[in-house]
């Protein structure tokens, strides 16, 4: 076994976090490292947590970590925050709510910035999950950015997706619009002591009924989580959430859906890898030679159209390489 692989598999946080960073920064050597690690991945159970900003995703994640640790499960968390499109900087603030686990060696929280990715995750999320899998984390929680866009990339990475809603935010409609109804395996109605809770629950239940007319397969349960500040009741609800997620996991295995999802995940990984191995190097090269700019100029002045340009690039790069 390669020494890096050995160390990461033994749970070395420093190396793991550095490798995740190399992936984020798209260093060429990162791909090689992931190749070596890949054989040791795929054994963790991956939970996605998504929902609008302010829905309380980080607080739920924090509580889930605590519940899982009680069962001696090791946990990895990837928390995604938005990159400012103006400055390229980001404030990664999700971990604030998880800091009480900072000293627990069984918990590894790593923040990621979106860096322009639009699907609610970061380009590095997939490989960052691989790194945490190789570290042997039993459970990996991926918290999406939650800016309320089309955050559905998570289904390509997670086994179970938890969608978090809050009463009184017009979430029901947002949820449908954003396609979150289709991706949810478990719903959480968070802050369920607020006005509008009953309405949200009713609407959600009726939407779910409509969606599952045939009544077969998994029926996404709704977990009502009250005020995080009533420690007893809150802990009970988190335990219920954890149970529902576990039931879903079992269902995936027993129904054979897990293999379906793994297939989907593999397809997505191929897609990402193709983009990383074919597209990105080409764009990089074009940018470095200045060709990219001159193509843009041509398109801008309508001397060429983007499709013709793309075909020309393809001819020059891929076909030529084929012949080699």
């Amino acid at each position: 076994m390669d020494s890096l692989v050995k160390k990461i598999c033994a749970g070395d946080v420093r190396l793991a976090s550095r490798l995740i960073r190399d992936i984020e920064d798209k260093l060429p050597e990162a791909k090689a490292k992931i190749k070596k690690l890949y054989a040791y991945t795929g054994k963790s159970f991956i939970i996605g947590i998504t929902g609008a900003p302010g829905a309380g995703k980080s607080t739920l994640t924090d509580a889930l970590i605590a519940a899982l640790r009680k069962k001696n499960k090791t946990v990895g968390v990837l928390a995604v925050d938005p990159t400012s499109p103006f400055t390229g900087g980001a404030i990664l603030g999700d971990r604030i709510r998880m800091q009480r686990h900072a000293e627990d060696a069984g918990v590894f929280v790593r923040s990621l910035a979106t860096r322009g990715a639009l699907g609610g995750l970061s380009h590095a999320a997939g490989d960052a999950i691989h790194v945490m899998e190789a570290m042997g984390k039993d459970i990996i929680i991926v918290e999406t950015v939650g800016i309320g866009q089309q955050e559905i990339d998570i289904i390509n990475h997670a086994h179970s997706v938890v969608v978090v809603l809050v009463p009184g935010m017009g979430d029901e409609i947002q949820t449908m619009k954003a396609g979150l109804m289709e991706i949810a395996d478990v719903f959480v109605v968070n802050k369920a002591n607020r006005p509008g809770t009953n309405q949200l629950q009713t609407e959600l239940a009726s939407m779910l009924n409509l969606a599952s007319k045939n009544g077969k397969g998994w029926q996404p349960p709704i977990v009502m989580v009250g005020d995080a500040f009533e420690p007893g009741a809150f802990a009970e609800k988190i335990a219920e959430l954890e149970r529902k997620i576990e039931e879903h996991h079992k269902y995936l295995i027993e129904s054979g859906k897990l293999t379906e999802r793994m297939h989907r995940k593999a397809m997505a990984e191929i897609n990402d890898a193709l983009s990383a191995c074919l597209l990105e190097p080409v764009i990089q090269k074009l940018a470095s030679t200045g060709e990219l700019d001159s193509f843009a100029e041509k398109i801008k002045s309508r001397k060429a159209d983007p499709y013709t340009v793309a075909e020309e690039i393809a001819k020059n790069y891929f076909i030529r390489q084929d012949k080699k």
């Binding site: 603030g93 604030i96 709510r97 009480r100 500040f229 009533e230 420690p231």
Partner: peptide
């Protein structure tokens, strides 16, 4: 009895 409040660190 009441639980502990932690800095939510809003930005």
């Amino acid at each position: 009895v009441y639980g502990e409040y932690k800095d939510p660190g809003l930005f």
